[in-house]
Write a protein that binds this DNA or RNA. Structure first.
Length: 431
RNA sequence: GUGGCCGUAGCUCAUCAGGUAGAGCACUGGAUUGUGAUUCCGGCGGUAGCGGGUUCGAGCCCCGUCGGCCACCCCA
């Protein structure tokens, strides 16, 4: 068994799945265009320093999940674990921040984690970022845009919106120390993971999955009580905007996000249908990041959605009509050398005149039975047959392979004079 | 990084208590020397992930290792 296998957690996406992916990509790019967002294409590799500074030194991503390596000149580079950092870097570097700017991107991200359902080491995100607008109407725009996407994908009933506000960094600090002192007084009741996080990242204890810890938190100080005034009025305004738009949401006061750069509004779209990895999309404000990365102070909001998870959900929900797996509309069969010549010439002409038809030409020889079998397996609706008889009479036999065609009174087969082939096909595939 | 379950034909799986492996699908030949999908008959296809151990004998038991799935951690 010396086959070379794919790297763990880096998966092939096979032809059976790519139609789902394409539908997602097309739907997203149309929708974003309709909201006036411009696509930006970013490198997959950035300087390691970029991620250390933006995501945060003590996060799991930076501490143990990055694919980092030394370039030949000694620079430390990293396969991007997320998209926001690179997008901000590009926006600053390319001078895109003079006016409010709406951007989106899509592509692979890399995180060294144990693979499980909805999580792999190379995964794909679609990211959306808006720069230069501090008011919550931009947050609302993002959320409503997402909601519209879920509806377009048939996922409207499968996801729930949870929102929260983290407050300004000062408010966060204040809340953080209040939480820590509350929990330190009850450290004996804390689970092991949470105790560790008490040192490293106390806010994350809030979304612990341990029931006992959650119970302990019922008596803890709440984030809302520590919010600065601007954060709380902005958050209230966002809720108001969502209500006005008829968008349902749940305020989850224990929602925190893993990356350090978030402040004020944060949110997640979650589902219960995907096992443990329920977050399908997540984001929020990061008003300080642009300045932190050397740009002029610029407020920003953004989110990222996980394409693998969305594709899983689409399949799970049956939202996608079990896609047409047929690779061909027409399958051309030719037996004999003369027939092959006639077939090739005719098919090239059909391709000229009916470029939208998917035509698979039989290759590799074989008898009639064999070739017809391939025609059937291809999923094609029509087989075109050339043999000695057709060559002699300068015609082609058109055979209907599918039952639904029979129901339309198009069944069996018929001889078609060569010069009528294109018009006959045009008529057959008119619907 | 931690834990549980699992690796047998291209795919999905069987092999009851250790006695050197079987089915369906797929592929292929024929019944049908120019006709698929249905039916019938035949054929190809396996160093049982890999390595070691126990045993007269290991797909089955033990150890290691690699890989997969799910969960924890964390996140999309």
């Amino acid at each position: 068994m010396s086959h070379i296998q794919a790297v763990r957690g880096m998966n092939d996406i096979l032809p059976d799945d790519t139609p789902h992916w394409r539908l997602l990509e097309q739907t997203v790019s149309r929708l974003l265009a309709s909201y006036g967002y411009g696509e930006i294409r970013l490198p997959v590799v950035e300087k390691t320093e970029l991620f250390r500074r933006s995501i945060g030194e003590v996060t799991d991503i930076v501490e143990r999940e990055m694919y980092s390596f030394d370039d030949r000149n000694g620079d430390s580079l990293t396969l991007r674990p997320e998209g926001t950092a690179g997008c901000v870097r590009a926006a600053v570097q390319q001078g895109l921040l003079g006016v409010p700017r709406r951007l989106w991107y899509a592509g692979p991200m890399f995180r060294y984690e144990r693979p499980q359902k909805g999580r792999q080491r190379q995964f794909h995100q679609i990211g959306v970022e808006s720069f230069g607008v501090a008011s919550p109407d931009m947050d609302a725009e993002h959320l409503l845009l997402c909601a519209r996407l879920w509806r377009a994908l048939g996922l409207g009933d499968s996801v729930e919106l949870q929102i929260n506000s983290l407050g300004s960094s000062a408010a966060r600090q204040a809340y953080r120390s209040a939480l820590v002192s509350y929990l330190e007084a009850r450290v004996d009741d804390l689970d092991e993971d949470s105790r560790r996080r008490l040192q490293s990242n106390p806010l994350r204890i809030l979304d612990s999955k341990v029931p006992q810890t959650q119970a302990l938190l019922d008596g803890a100080p709440t984030m809302a009580d520590y919010l600065d005034e601007e954060s709380s009025t902005d958050f209230a305004r966002l809720c108001e905007l969502l209500q006005a738009a008829g968008q349902a949401y749940v305020v989850n006061p224990r929602l925190v996000r893993g990356l350090d750069y978030y402040n004020k509004t944060v949110y997640e779209w979650v589902t219960t249908r995907l096992g443990a990895q329920g977050t399908v999309c997540g984001g929020g404000r990061y008003d300080a990041l642009v300045e932190q990365l050397g740009g002029k102070p610029t407020p920003a909001v953004g989110f990222a959605m996980g394409m693998e998870r969305l594709v899983l959900l689409m399949a799970e929900t049956g939202a996608i009509d079990s896609a047409d797996k047929a690779l061909a509309d027409v399958y051309a069969v030719a037996v004999g050398e003369a027939a092959q010549l006639a077939s090739l010439a005719a098919i090239e002409s059909v391709r000229d005149q009916l470029p939208e038809l998917a035509i698979v030409q039989h290759t590799g020889g074989g008898n009639f039975k064999n070739q017809l079998k391939k025609a059937d397996r291809s999923g094609a609706r029509v087989a075109l047959i050339w043999g000695e008889d057709e060559v002699r009479s300068q015609s082609v036999t058109l055979k209907f392979l599918r039952e639904e065609a029979a129901q339309e009174g198009k069944s069996g087969q018929q001889a078609v004079p060569r010069e009528q082939l294109e018009s006959t096909l045009r008529a057959v595939f008119a619907d």
